[in-house]
Amino acid sequence: MKLLTLNFLTCAIKTCKTNPASFPLHPRDAELEIQEADLNLTFLKNILPRLMWEELRVISSELGLPELPATPPAPADLVEPSNTPLDTAEVTLAEGGAEAQEVEETPSQTAKDLHRILLETCIQEGKLVCGSCGHEYAVKEGVANFLLPGHLV
């Protein structure tokens, strides 16, 4: 299960929904695995406003991953700075205009790091714990189980 998925999940118990402590769910005893995935730069730039950054920092530190900066990167931070508009113009000229479409931007190290944490760092085994009621959801073979025992439904 990818860490970005945790950005969209909460405790499944109804009465927890209104308690801010039910988000994010806290990983515990987690075994992580890196699963390589294509880097989609447009996606990374556009997802920034949807990220609950503070919560992502919490999860990341609970997993013992390198500390994330206090504020999220800006879209411009995700592109390799050598790729200036001037270069783009030159390339377009060199390649003869019409055929040359928008020059592909190169992801910066910041983009690669963000991609790694959001989409390549996966929880394979472990638990996700609600900060409100303390309920533990198991993660097995990368699949989180949010089904509740009968008495909690």
């Binding site: 299960m1 990818k2 970005l4 998925t5 950005n7 969209f8 999940l9 909460t10 405790c11 499944a12 109804k14 929904k17 988000f23 959801y137 990368g142 699949v143 989180a144 189980n145 949010f146 089904l147 509740l148 439904v153």
Partner: peptide
Amino acid sequence: LDVVNGDLGSAIRP
């Protein structure tokens, strides 16, 4: 993202 095991949308952030 993922497919999670759950009852309908009960674990989805509002």
